[in-house]
Every structure is written in structure tokens, then in C-alpha cells.
Amino acid sequence: MRQGVILLVVVMMSGLAFTLSSPPGIAYPDHFPTTAYDFRAHPLDSAKVQLGRRLFYDEILSADGTISCASCHSPYNAFAHTDHDLSHGINDQIGTRNAPALFNLAWSTSFHHDGAHHSIELQPLAPISHPAEMGSSIGDIVRRLSEHAQYRQAFSESFGDSLVTGERVLKALAQFQLTLVSAGAKYDRVQAGKDTFSVQEQKGYQLFQTYCNDCHFEPLFTTGGFARNGLRVDTTLNDFGRMMITALPEDSLLFKIPSLRNLSYTHPYMHDGRFRKLRQVLKHYASRDVRPMPISANEQSDIVAFLLTLDDRDFVFNRNHGFPH
């Protein structure tokens, strides 16, 4: 009897400790703004996160079982697709855009280079359904997962019963992707007073604040908005960016401003992956037709030195969001 009471107290206290140590959302440093995603309305749940992680790495999502989310969003490339200017899907088909890196998505209010999707929960419908990406449909995925005993078990653990629905698949994928937080770069340690920039990095930081920060706004290194960066249209792709979504002429050639974190891992650069080196990107901004930036070759080197302080090695090699075992 007494043992029973003690056990009960221990169970209650451990429950309390769990509640206290598990905020409804994700952990991030003080210099980050609050998230755009509403974790109070949709709290993270570890079973759902793990289910989403498993789905993210599983080729079962594609029509022929060859392509997973991670095929083009590899953890070792900060969830981008290194060395591929344009990503490829089922049957070796090539798409029309460079796969964007995935991190700090809880702060994002639009997704894709043209902001086609505004909800992290519904965005996966695009690669799932695109004939040159996964070539499947959410309905087919629900059917395939329903026939899979281990998945039925995982849905049961996450949602209380083994029913697989489109809503549940998409919720789980979103939960996993929301946990991808990159906030451990040298820049972040400097912000926290735990490290210092070198002289060159500091010079680069000042130049960055003068020329880049309006769009690539600290500490996420994007405003989340759209901008015209002066790239000429690649006539083999004829990609006019946001206009293709809004049908508004004034949105022609607007592309989503990407974060500048983890650039060492996410080359090539720009929406169509046309630049293989960071130096080419800097050169473009210094020489573009409209409002070229007066930055010398030496200053460009300084900016690159600063940008490399945004590499987050701990994020890239974090096994918690790597391939599930």
C-alpha cells in the first residue's frame, strides 16, 4: 500500500517534470524572435515528430518508391541538395528550381521560391503531387501507409488510433520539419557573448549590415519576404517567380529571400542554382544592371568571411533529425 502511494507520487512528479521541461514549441536562443508557427494551438508531440521524421526519409511517399523528401533535402546539406542546380525526381526527371534548404521553418510564413504555399502543413502536397518530383498523391500515400502494419502502429501511437488520413500524414511531416532549428552557428555564439568575430569577420559583418541586412535580416537572415535580386531570366526555364502564383504583373521576378545560414552546405545558389560559388553571388550583386552594390573584391572577401560564421555544423550533423534507425 505504502509502496503504491510512493510510486504514485513518483509518477506524478515525473509527469510534472516532463511538463516543465517540455515547452509546447521548440527551443531557440534569446536573440531569435518568437516563432510565426502557433505552438500553443498545435503543440509538438514527440511521437508525431518521430512519425514525421520516418515519413520524411521514406521513399514510400513517391509513386515508384524511389524518392523521399530527403532525396532533395539531405540532412548533410542543411536539408538542401548539394551539387544539383535543379533537383531530380522519379524516373530521373529534372525540375525547374533549386531545392531550398529546410531549417527555421517555424519562423516562415511562406514556402517555395515563389511563396506558393503559406502553410508548412500543406506544403508537402506540392512535391508529393508534382509529376517530376514524387509523382504521387496524398490519397495514394494514405492507401499505401494504411496497408503497412508498422505505420498503422506508428499512427496509433501518435494519434490514438491506427487510422491513416491525409490530415495526419501532413501534420506529422510538419511536426518533424518544425524541429529543424539552426541556431548554433559562430554568429549565434557571438550574439550570446560566448565568442568573438575575427577582424575580417567583423569587417564583413559591418559591410553585411550596410548592403545585405535589409533583405537578409538578422538573426534569421531573411525578412521572409520577396525581392527582385537583378538576376536575368534564364530563357531555358522562363521562371518569373511570384507572379506565377499571384498572376499580378508587379510580382514578376520576385523570389523569396532565402536565409544565409549554412551556405557552406547548400551550394549551388539562387532559385535556379546558377552560381556554384559564393564569390559568384557577391560578384553578381556588385555588377548587376540595377543598383549594383559598390563593394570591392576585398570587401566581398570580408563579407564571405562573415557569411561563413553562419554555418551551423551542430545542426547539420545533429543525429536527432538524421535518418531514423
Binding site: A116, S129, H130, E167
Partner: peptide
């Protein structure tokens, strides 16, 4: 975000290429 029931995207009434 995503909803179930009549609003579940498996009903084929949610665009995939855009929101």
C-alpha cells in the same frame, strides 16, 4: 493549416501546386 473530414486534402479539393 491542414484539417480533416470534409477538408482533408485527400478529397482532391486542395490545390497541390499552391495554397
Amino acid at each position: 493549416g491542414v484539417f480533416g473530414g470534409d477538408l482533408d486534402p485527400t478529397n482532391g479539393m486542395y490545390w497541390t501546386w499552391r495554397s
